[in-house]
Simulated scan of single mutants.
Amino acid sequence: MTDSRPLVEPVSGEPAAVADVGRERALVVADYHAGIEAGLRYERGVELDSHAEVRRARIRSLLDRTDPDRLVVLGDLGHQIGNPKGDEEGELAAFAEMVTDRVPVTLVRGNHDGGIEEQLAPEFGDRFVVTDGAGVRLGDVGFVHGHRWPKREVLEADIVCSAHEHPAVRLEDSVGGGRKERAWLRGPLRPEPFADHLGLDVGGRGPSDRRAKPADTAELDWKSPELVVFPAFNDRSGGTWVNVDGQGFLSPFLPDALRSADAYLLDGTRLGAYDSL
């Protein structure tokens, strides 16, 4: 009997998912933003008590609940763009020590992860691996933070996981009150933007932009993957309101590569097409 479980399945009520990655089962979270309180204090003058221990407790709870073989962080484990220091450095060290005591960590490098590899990899070795910013493929699942174009091996996966956007929706009640809710986006990827970027054919169709760099091989092995855009794990990190006019995407391949996608709340509620909410 064929196993019909999805390769990537959200954890109900949480900004996290479980993914089957070859012989391993991975817990996947995105945009942890360790040390965000110190960053908000410096960047905006906002004073908030640190939730560092709260964040670690939530990760511990998810590890207990899902019992994975690995933790995959889809970028922006840290908050500062440059080298982490102060409260952020301490939170990152405590996070890595707590998690690697249980499972190895794969950090898909995001735009906020400068200096993390130099800080943590020497201490934790192969228990804490940082990938290239263009992503990594584990089994049949491709992972990329989303601030850069994915590499070819990521695009040739059966499903692609991305982050960076912190997608959220604004929900209004009957009397005009509104609230923000973190959301998932899921929908089929279009191959043309990636083929143009890589200078490759897709199923015999050449890239529409003939100025693209020459193809190193004839064709992109396109499997019509679904894209899953993860909500931010950190609920203090803001986000892209996908159903509010004037809110643009941050990833270089969005929204062109995702012309149709549904939005889902963390509890699994399907809201329908994100661009018509």
Score class of each variant (00 low, 15 high):
residue 76 D to K: 00
residue 38 A to Q: 13
residue 51 H to A: 05
residue 66 T to Y: 08
residue 62 L to R: 08
residue 67 D to H: 12
residue 75 G to W: 07
residue 66 T to Q: 10
residue 67 D to V: 09
residue 70 R to E: 02
residue 36 I to E: 10
residue 32 Y to D: 01
residue 41 R to D: 11
residue 37 E to V: 01
residue 39 G to L: 06
residue 62 L to V: 13
residue 56 R to E: 06
residue 38 A to L: 05
residue 77 L to K: 01
residue 79 H to L: 06
residue 71 L to V: 11
residue 50 S to Y: 08
residue 68 P to G: 05
residue 37 E to F: 02
residue 56 R to Q: 07
residue 47 E to A: 12
residue 73 V to R: 00
residue 45 G to A: 09
residue 69 D to A: 14
residue 69 D to S: 14
residue 78 G to E: 00
residue 80 Q to N: 11
residue 68 P to Q: 07
residue 42 Y to H: 13
residue 76 D to I: 04
residue 50 S to F: 03
residue 41 R to A: 14
residue 46 V to H: 12
residue 64 D to S: 12
residue 29 V to W: 00
residue 36 I to L: 14
residue 64 D to F: 06
residue 31 D to P: 00
residue 28 V to T: 04
residue 66 T to A: 07
residue 75 G to V: 03
residue 77 L to W: 01
residue 51 H to P: 05
residue 65 R to Y: 07
residue 50 S to A: 06
residue 80 Q to V: 08
residue 46 V to F: 10
residue 73 V to E: 03
residue 61 S to P: 06
residue 54 V to N: 10
residue 62 L to S: 11
residue 29 V to N: 01
residue 72 V to Q: 00
residue 53 E to W: 11
residue 34 A to K: 01
residue 51 H to E: 14
residue 80 Q to A: 14
residue 49 D to A: 15
residue 66 T to R: 04
residue 76 D to A: 01
residue 34 A to N: 02
residue 57 A to F: 09
residue 28 V to E: 00
residue 40 L to I: 01
residue 39 G to D: 06
residue 31 D to C: 02
residue 28 V to G: 01
residue 56 R to I: 05
residue 41 R to I: 01
residue 29 V to R: 04
residue 31 D to T: 01
residue 72 V to A: 03
residue 34 A to V: 07
residue 46 V to C: 09
residue 42 Y to I: 10
residue 35 G to Y: 03
residue 56 R to H: 06
residue 46 V to I: 13
residue 46 V to E: 12
residue 38 A to T: 02
residue 80 Q to M: 10
residue 44 R to A: 11
residue 51 H to N: 13
residue 53 E to F: 10
residue 60 R to K: 13
residue 43 E to I: 07
residue 64 D to L: 08
residue 34 A to G: 07
residue 34 A to D: 03
residue 32 Y to T: 09
residue 52 A to T: 11
residue 41 R to Q: 12
residue 58 R to K: 15
residue 71 L to E: 06
residue 76 D to Y: 03
residue 57 A to N: 14
residue 63 L to R: 15
residue 40 L to C: 05
residue 58 R to Q: 14
residue 69 D to W: 03
residue 33 H to K: 09
residue 29 V to G: 00
residue 57 A to S: 15
residue 50 S to M: 05
residue 38 A to S: 14
residue 78 G to K: 14
residue 77 L to F: 03
residue 34 A to L: 14
residue 78 G to P: 02
residue 41 R to T: 00
residue 49 D to C: 09
residue 71 L to W: 04
residue 51 H to M: 10
residue 47 E to D: 13
residue 72 V to S: 00
residue 30 A to M: 10
residue 64 D to T: 08
residue 56 R to N: 09
residue 38 A to Y: 00
residue 74 L to H: 06
residue 40 L to R: 12
residue 78 G to M: 02
residue 78 G to D: 04
residue 68 P to A: 06
residue 64 D to K: 12
residue 56 R to G: 02
residue 48 L to Y: 14
residue 60 R to Y: 04
residue 37 E to K: 07
residue 36 I to Q: 12
